[in-house]
Amino acid sequence: MATSCCSPVTCVATCSDAFYFEVVAPETDLAADSFEQSQCLGRWVRSEFNKFLLLNDEKKFQVQNLTSEQLSQPECNFQILIYSDMEHVEEKGRKVAMLYVKNEGTNMVACCRKRTEVYPEVYPEEMDTLPKRIEETKHKALFFMTKLTACATFSFESTENPSWFLGFQPDGENPSLNKLVLLKKKDTQEVDNAMRVILIK
């Protein structure tokens, strides 16, 4: 919880040469650490290597080349749900976003979980109803979305796993495919090409 202005005080007692005060923080002066839905964008999600993110028949995220015919199928577009936040993350040049795609009428949301004690992973999770308001400052389905260039290139950092970004990695089982993963950012200012996410209308 963060105060939106200075907290008023009330004198409650005096003793000898000392004054005792009580801090009074009215509820109306508090800004909750929370996120609220504000905007939804339909976009193709593409890697720097010209492969597009899809939910395959096994309900797993897959990154592959698409034909022009496949690109004309709007149901494969991902929805980027933007949340406004009470702590003004936008002022730092980034937004808070959730990524999901419709599958047979169900929302399949990109979420994070710990694969091991150290390494998190990203996976699709069914959500019948997307939350209109999220009270926590960290959430498995929320990412800090930062614009990297004048073109529609962004990075998506997990709010639950700081310094871990959505990225693309070759699929060991099929070299022609990539998979959606969480990648750890190195100790440099530059975002690795594998962490660059291109959003196309």
Score class of each variant (00 low, 15 high):
residue 153 T to W: 00
residue 164 W to A: 03
residue 1 M to L: 11
residue 37 Q to V: 14
residue 192 D to S: 14
residue 190 E to R: 13
residue 178 N to I: 00
residue 138 K to Q: 09
residue 200 I to R: 03
residue 14 T to S: 09
residue 149 T to H: 05
residue 35 F to P: 01
residue 52 F to S: 02
residue 6 C to Q: 00
residue 108 M to E: 07
residue 194 A to H: 13
residue 57 D to F: 02
residue 100 Y to V: 01
residue 150 A to Q: 14
residue 74 P to A: 10
residue 199 L to C: 06
residue 136 E to C: 00
residue 158 S to L: 03
residue 162 P to W: 05
residue 35 F to G: 05
residue 114 K to D: 12
residue 191 V to I: 15
residue 186 K to T: 05
residue 168 F to M: 12
residue 22 E to C: 13
residue 122 V to R: 04
residue 142 L to K: 11
residue 147 K to R: 15
residue 67 T to I: 04
residue 178 N to S: 02
residue 173 E to Y: 01
residue 39 Q to D: 15
residue 138 K to Y: 02
residue 7 S to N: 12
residue 31 A to N: 05
residue 118 V to M: 06
residue 26 P to R: 01
residue 2 A to V: 06
residue 75 E to A: 11
residue 141 A to C: 14
residue 185 K to M: 14
residue 182 L to S: 03
residue 163 S to C: 05
residue 49 F to C: 13
residue 53 L to F: 05
residue 129 T to G: 02
residue 81 L to P: 01
residue 196 R to T: 06
residue 108 M to V: 02
residue 7 S to I: 11
residue 40 C to P: 00
residue 19 F to S: 14
residue 65 N to L: 12
residue 86 M to N: 14
residue 11 C to Y: 04
residue 79 Q to Y: 13
residue 8 P to G: 02
residue 4 S to V: 09
residue 51 K to H: 06
residue 52 F to I: 00
residue 162 P to M: 07
residue 161 N to W: 10
residue 75 E to R: 13
residue 191 V to G: 06
residue 195 M to R: 06
residue 193 N to V: 09
residue 45 V to I: 15
residue 8 P to C: 01
residue 17 D to A: 14
residue 26 P to A: 01
residue 114 K to L: 15
residue 56 N to V: 10
residue 50 N to R: 12
residue 120 P to G: 08
residue 157 E to P: 07
residue 62 Q to H: 08
residue 73 Q to F: 12
residue 67 T to P: 03
residue 49 F to H: 15
residue 160 E to T: 08
residue 184 K to A: 12
residue 92 K to V: 05
residue 200 I to Q: 07
residue 90 E to V: 00
residue 55 L to F: 02
residue 129 T to Y: 10
residue 197 V to M: 09
residue 113 R to V: 03
residue 68 S to W: 05
residue 104 E to Y: 14
residue 137 T to M: 14
residue 153 T to Y: 02
residue 156 F to H: 04
residue 198 I to S: 09
residue 160 E to V: 02
residue 197 V to S: 04
residue 93 G to Q: 03
residue 74 P to T: 13
residue 73 Q to Y: 12
residue 6 C to T: 00
residue 84 S to W: 04
residue 135 E to P: 00
residue 44 W to D: 12
residue 199 L to E: 03
residue 86 M to V: 06
residue 179 K to E: 11
residue 116 T to Q: 09
residue 137 T to A: 13
residue 138 K to V: 03
residue 56 N to L: 11
residue 33 D to L: 13
residue 96 V to M: 09
residue 60 K to P: 00
residue 94 R to W: 10
residue 69 E to H: 11
residue 188 T to Y: 06
residue 16 S to C: 03
residue 124 P to E: 10
residue 53 L to Q: 07
residue 182 L to P: 04
residue 55 L to M: 06
residue 46 R to S: 02
residue 195 M to G: 09
residue 166 L to F: 08
residue 96 V to W: 04
residue 129 T to R: 13
residue 126 E to Q: 14
